[in-house]
Amino acid sequence: MSGEKHHIVPYRLYFVVLIALLALTFASVWITSIELRDYTVAAALLFAIVKSYLVLNYFMHLKYDKPYIKIMVGFVFAIFLVMIVITFLDYLYR
């Protein structure tokens, strides 16, 4: 995985991550079914972000990758965030 040093992720860790992801999924189903009004979208997205963090770090091995790959991934998400912010600034203030 990470260059010359092969970090072998134990099966057990993957299983634990899966359990966490399933728990977060059911939690997000539950939290969006109760009436939160404007916070429903925020709550659902928050759960999705935590889930994607787990998938990126453990399933996609980013946690064990060299820093430059992590920085690249972070950079892409930053670009995406900027794209959203700029789009909404445009719609909110036109």
Binding site: M1, T25, S28, V29, T32, T40, V41, A44, L45, F47, A48, K51, S52, V55, L56, F59, M60
Partner: peptide
Amino acid sequence: LDNCGLYWHLVDLIWIFLFPLFYLIH
């Protein structure tokens, strides 16, 4: 195999956002 896995996780990652946006947020 590693890249096949990465691709599959990407598919999973996209679904993680599609699911709440279409099915959960009413």
